[in-house]
Amino acid sequence: MSVIAHADRIQAPPGAAVRRRKSFLRRRSTVAFFMALPLILIVALLVLYPASYAVYLSTLNKTMERFVGFGNFLFLFKRDSFWMVVEQSVIFAVTAVLFKAVIGLVVAHFVHNLPAKGQRKWRGMLLVPWVIPPAMSTLAWLWLFDPSYSAFNWIFAHFGIDPVPWLGNPYWARFAVILVNVWVGAPFFMIMYLAALKSVPDQLYEAAEIDGANWFQKLWYVTLPMMRNIISITVLFSLIVTFANFDIVRVLTNGGPLDQTQVFATWAFRLGIESNDIPLGASVSLFMFPVLAFAAIFILRDINRRGNEA
């Protein structure tokens, strides 16, 4: 068999190789690859290289002169302050994503049920918090929560209510950073869910109605199953972004009071840049990478499986 193939190659006319090359270049997958190549190169340059460099940095000692392997991670695991940051990051990300998902779903339903004529205006207005750069909008929130001149407290004072230590008390400070994150991120959920709602065929609701389903049953048995993939992807995406959040905490509380609002990114900055221990900062910032990668693989595999079933 191999002899025949070899003979075939020898006897092939000279134009065959050119034709094969042309056909390879004309293949849709080849064209797609070449069209995506600039993006692949940009991603490699701006994402893969820094990520790999961060991994390399996390394996060095404090003065960056010696390879220590997983030494920085083992050091972190023994520090109470690190586990406090882990706990706070989980509370921050999970609570914020949960509220963003619920608020996004409710608001998407409201907008979906608005008359088509005014819907675009509402959609535009509701997207504003997501469109403004978070560092800027958080500054406005900082003025609302300011320890000495809080606008909220000023209003409370008019009603005889005691001022709230928005950023001075650890629990209120956590509430404040989560609130701002929800305010910024909920419109993203809203717009994704709205798109998903619009793709649910009306016939399904009509059939459910004929079967006597109430609004909750329609939501539970029709809407949510049809939106499952979008919900999974949106939650996954938001979880990753929220775990990596830096600007809101940095601007609003700078991790205080008493480090009670520190999250991975702000703690990594404090250790790596401000305390001049770049390898330890890199280790903190990479801690969630395997956890989130693991979650992403499972969620995406589940979505893929459902896609194939469909």
């Binding site: 320890p147 000495s148 928005w166 950023l167 001075g168």
Partner: peptide
């Protein structure tokens, strides 16, 4: 000291004095 000083940043003290408080 002034209330909420544990939440102060580097601008808070300046504002506190300039405001006359």
């Amino acid at each position: 000291l002034a209330p909420d000083v544990s939440a102060w940043d580097d601008a808070s003290n300046n504002k506190w004095l300039i405001s006359g408080k």
